[in-house]
Design a protein around this nucleic acid. Structure first.
Lengths: 102, 102
DNA sequence: TCAGACTATTCTAATAATTGAATATAAAAA
DNA sequence: TTTTTATATTCAATTATTAGAATAGTCTGA
């Protein structure tokens, strides 16, 4: 039985606990976009995106790979991916609860 | 296909993104402790615990039930419970990766 | 009713997070 | 080499979070 390190987990959760970062991470989960692509999809300044990516990189949540003059990102492991799955599943579940007929 | 509301999800994550609150939520997941019990286990001031619980209540993450002169808490739904599972599973996985023999 | 135990709220000071602007760096194209 | 495109970093101002202290409310039992 492994005890949870609440400080460490809280740090991970905090990294995801920002609308822009969460959106960034979700996009990185789907494809492996470069910064420019994120900028266009999110409509947020390049500086801001880069700062959020910097934070995610330093926590080891995402990894950068240079391709020519652009930098592409991918998720480091599947923990974050699973977290996103839980979130979207829980939304789905609540949707169908609202729509049920009894 | 349901699109994720990143602002709403980020709010949920932020609520969990604090060591004390995460610990509180994990304890509430296991048993259904009253404030006094949380205070004793966590070694944190009553005021502080109550503030964290207030935040969790207002976001609908936990629910309070009065029992005599104390108030017991439980999780509202299993989304948070599943999040905790993902976190502890991911820790388990990394533990066994470190311990593997190749 | 009153005292005592348990819980919640409010206020405040300290600290942390967020953002835009400006600037720096790296690769490609001219 | 110079210019352009893409990305990263630094700085400063604003806003948000946190925790302790003080206070208030709620329930039980005498």
């Amino acid at each position: 039985m492994v005890r949870i390190d609440y400080t460490h987990c809280a740090q991970l959760l905090k990294a995801l606990a920002h609308p822009t970062r969460l959106n960034i991470v979700a996009l990185i989960k789907e494809e492996q976009p470069c910064v420019k692509a994120l900028e266009e999809v999110l409509g947020v300044s390049q500086s801001n995106i880069s700062q959020h990516l910097s934070l995610l990189r330093h926590l080891g949540i995402v990894r950068a790979r240079r391709e020519g003059n652009q930098v592409c990102y991918r998720l480091s492991d599947d923990t974050v991916s699973k977290m996103l799955d839980v979130l979207s599943n829980s939304i789905n579940q609540k949707e169908s609860e609202n729509g049920k007929s009894d």
